Deep mutational scan, measured.
Amino acid sequence: MSGIALSRLAQERKAWRKDHPFGFVAVPTKNPDGTMNLMNWECAIPGKKGTPWEGGLFKLRMLFKDDYPSSPPKCKFEPPLFHPNVYPSGTVCLSILEEDKDWRPAITIKQILLGIQELLNEPNIQDPAQAEAYTIYCQNRVEYEKRVRAQAKKFAPS
């Protein structure tokens, strides 16, 4: 494992614990031996107030490669969400998460999670990743928002 990646992720964890947006979660997972795995984080993004996503808490896994922060983490909703920019596998399609697009090593975990929260309610229809959600979003916004509200209710924190 890269010392650069681990040191950056340790800084990220410290900064997150000191200050993070209300309702968001970002925690490194534990290895079988109980030690912390900084390369694999369990996160959760709350649906934004005043949107059909409100009330939901959407679980996301963030996986970092050894060359982080040169390369972005892979962000994957578990379980996958109904959304035009979420692949059926759950992987998020967002330009700041793509090395050859808008990724920059200075982007923080907090910025990534806030960017994904923004994307939930403002899909990028130029870059669809899920045919069904994309089609319904474009053709029947009322039905799309109904499905999103049902999903938010399903993923409401207990």
Rank of each mutant, 00 (worst) to 15 (best):
E78I: 10
F58K: 05
F77T: 06
D127P: 00
R61Q: 12
E99G: 14
Y144P: 04
K153A: 15
L113Y: 08
G23K: 08
L114S: 12
K74G: 15
T108Y: 15
R149Q: 13
A10K: 15
E132G: 11
C75R: 04
P123E: 00
S89F: 12
T108D: 10
K65H: 12
F22Y: 10
P46W: 02
A133E: 01
W16L: 05
P80S: 10
E98K: 14
L119Y: 14
G90C: 07
N85V: 05
N85S: 10
A44K: 15
L6C: 11
K30Y: 07
V148N: 00
A15C: 13
D67I: 05
K49P: 05
P157R: 08
D102T: 06
I125F: 10
R104I: 01
L60P: 02
E145D: 13
A152V: 04
R149D: 08
S95A: 04
T29C: 13
F155M: 05
N124T: 02
A5G: 14
T29V: 07
P79W: 14
K14V: 09
R13I: 03
N140E: 12
Y137T: 09
D66E: 12
Q130P: 00
Q130T: 08
V92I: 07
D100N: 14
V142T: 13
W41G: 01
R104W: 03
K146T: 13
D127Q: 00
L81T: 03
L63E: 15
N140F: 01
Q11H: 12
E132F: 06
A152I: 04
T29G: 12
F58V: 08
G50K: 14
N140C: 04
K146E: 13
L114E: 11
K154S: 14
A156L: 06
Q126L: 11
P80R: 11
Y87L: 02
N124R: 03
D66Y: 08
Y87D: 01
F155W: 01
E118N: 12
E118M: 10
G50F: 11
V142Q: 12
K49E: 14
G34A: 07
G3Y: 12
I112K: 07
C93T: 00
P80I: 07
Q126W: 11
S2H: 12
E143Q: 11
P128Y: 02
L60D: 02
A15W: 08
M62P: 04
P32L: 14
I136F: 13
V148A: 09
K153S: 10
D100A: 13
K14N: 07
Y137D: 02
H83A: 03
K153L: 11
F22P: 03
G47Y: 10
G3L: 10
L6Q: 11
K110I: 07
I125Q: 06
